[in-house]
């Protein structure tokens, strides 16, 4: 139990150190440049404390329980003795043998994104600003589907050993094409959602999966093939969020047509 509290304390200290530059910059500018007190100072401070405490609890909980298990599972699922249960490891690998890895990648990508605190923050703001056209859950699920699909494809890339930049460049081309068809007001949010998906929850588990895979698949190098899953996880949400907006627009216009018919 003491070890546990020491861990909690260390994480809390770490979080405070992370926040320190932000606090200095904000209050420095507030005091020296804006020269006006922060409105509701007490409430803001209490809120800051909640954020710090909340993050510390969140991280310790993840590190104590979920990460070790996720890590272990990533190792077991990519272990040749699981993949080739009983059979010998073939000279030429078939990508189909890794089907559970792709499924795990998609599922864990989706699940960790739903719990990502930074994404919740952006989704709350987006719902406020859009007046409810974009819902907190709609956006989060759209992003999570993107991350799941991205990471599944990323693991497929590691298994087959195809160069990372082909996929990323093709993905960018898709983003460019979709940008010209998506509703204008979603574009900035869609681009943002690429960056927010990859923080506290997703990165550690996904990195473990990538490195585990690259070190067990014959012929892959950890250095060249182990990285890049995060890049997939940042690229695909842009596509799915724009897709979500296109779907909402299409549904709204269909409802309008129905409404008009009833009216007429």
């Amino acid at each position: 139990m003491t070890a546990f509290f020491i861990h909690l304390w260390q994480v809390m200290l770490g979080t405070i150190l992370d926040v320190l530059p932000i606090v200095i910059i904000i209050f420095g500018f507030q005091g020296l440049v804006i020269r006006k007190p922060v409105p509701n100072m007490r409430k803001v401070l209490v809120g800051f404390t909640y954020v710090l405490l909340g993050l510390a609890f969140f991280l310790v909980g993840l590190e104590e329980a979920l990460f070790p298990l996720g890590d272990l599972m990533a190792k077991q699922l990519t272990d040749p003795s699981f993949i080739y249960a009983g059979r010998s490891v073939p000279e030429l690998i078939h990508w189909q043998d890794y089907k559970w890895v792709y499924l795990f990648a998609a599922a864990i990508g989706f699940a960790t994104t739903v719990a990502e605190p930074a994404l919740i923050a952006v989704a709350i703001k987006a719902q406020d600003v859009s007046g409810g056209t974009i819902s907190v859950w709609g956006l989060r699920v759209a992003v999570a589907i993107g991350v799941g699909a991205g990471i599944a494809l990323g693991t497929y890339r590691i298994v087959t050993g195809t160069p990372l930049h082909y996929y990323i460049i093709a993905g960018y081309v898709l983003v460019i094409i979709q940008t010209s068809y998506a509703p204008k007001n979603i574009i900035a949010l869609a681009y943002d959602s690429g960056g927010v998906t990859t923080s506290t929850v997703t990165v550690p588990l996904v990195t473990a999966l990538g490195l585990g895979l690259a070190s067990t698949v014959p012929g892959r190098s950890v250095l060249i093939d182990g990285f890049g899953l995060i890049a997939f996880a940042s690229l695909f949400p842009m596509l799915t969020v724009m897709g979500y907006a296109q779907l909402s627009r299409w549904r709204a216009s269909r409802n309008n047509v129905h409404g008009d018919n009833k009216g007429g």
């Binding site: 409430k43 803001v44 809120g47 909640y50 405490l53 909340g54």
Partner: peptide, 9 residues
């Protein structure tokens, strides 16, 4: 706690 602090702070 994090979400509460987000909206307050």
């Amino acid at each position: 706690l994090f979400i509460r602090g987000l909206e307050m702070g």
